[in-house]
């Protein structure tokens, strides 16, 4: 465990050092990310300009969902997408051999291999959204709410990471999955809204196929201090299942890896 912790720290330092080489990128990428996030907030303002309550959510409460969406988006853009691109490239070129040869777990190595810190500036936007939301609600969160929200957030990140592991595993079979990033981005965008907005078919898809509701609505409920035990347990259980399934699929998938020369 300690070996992995220090390994993680080392990978992070390498990524940071790499990132600092391209300082103009650092600024422009960060700027573009924040700009996207802010323009993406406009529909929220327009919706709540027309209505005070949408699908049982007030403006302040809906801001929490958007906050968690922004936070997860930052994790996705900054830590998960870059390593996916890297591993897909390695599989195509055959250099994935070098990862497998290393004496540490390959899944850990690829998921921490590349982190783009400037893509994560939206973590700050998320914090701003939480603060603004609580100002709108006229109260603050209790420490226990924050704790349970953090727990559910951890589960969400685990689910997000699992979904990506499944996506990457696909790359061992079909090689070209870069566009999957685009596709997932488009679907994930729906997580910006409280899950009760969606009904019928979309509701089923977003609960059981891609658990978007679990990922952003549950932590928002937790932070607002109204998460039921069912929600907390459900999030944890979903995360455990997601991690187990993705781990199994990953193990099978690397069995299918044929390096470029063989």
């Amino acid at each position: 465990m300690r070996a992995y912790a220090s390994l993680f720290w080392m990978q992070l330092r390498t990524s940071l050092a790499l990132a600092m080489q391209y300082r103009v990128d650092f600024v422009t990428d960060g700027f573009v990310e924040v700009f996207w996030m802010i323009t993406a907030l406009v529909p929220l303002f327009v919706v709540f300009d027309a209505r005070h309550v949408v699908a049982g959510w007030t403006f302040g409460q809906a801001l929490m969902v958007t906050g968690f969406f922004t936070l997860l988006q930052a994790v996705l853009e900054g830590a998960i997408n870059p390593s996916v691109q890297l591993v897909v490239e390695q599989i195509r070129k055959g250099t994935f051999d070098f990862v497998l040869l290393k004496p540490k777990d390959a899944q850990f190595l690829v998921s921490t291999a590349r982190i783009l810190p400037w893509r994560s500036v939206n973590v700050l936007t998320a914090v701003a959204l939480f603060v603004y939301g609580f100002v709108k609600l006229g109260r603050g969160p209790t420490p226990s709410d924050v704790a349970s929200a953090l727990l559910v957030l951890l589960a969400s990140i685990a689910i997000l990471h699992s979904l990506w592991t499944l996506g990457v595993s696909l790359a061992f079979y079909v090689v070209k999955v870069d566009n999957l990033t685009m596709l997932f981005g488009a679907v994930f965008d729906a997580a910006r809204w409280p899950s009760s907005v969606f009904r019928g078919f979309l509701h089923v898809v977003f609960t059981f196929v891609i658990p978007l509701g679990v990922m952003t609505t549950f932590p928002a409920d937790a932070l607002l201090g109204r998460a039921s035990l069912l929600e907390l347990g459900g999030a944890t259980l979903t995360a455990v299942i997601a991690v187990t399934v993705s781990r199994t699929v990953w193990k099978r998938a690397i069995g299918h890896y044929t390096s470029a020369s063989s």
């Binding site: 529909p43 729906a190 907005v197 969606f198 009904r199």
Partner: peptide
Amino acid sequence: VMLALWSA
């Protein structure tokens, strides 16, 4: 997605 949201 926007269709679902706005019709709600």
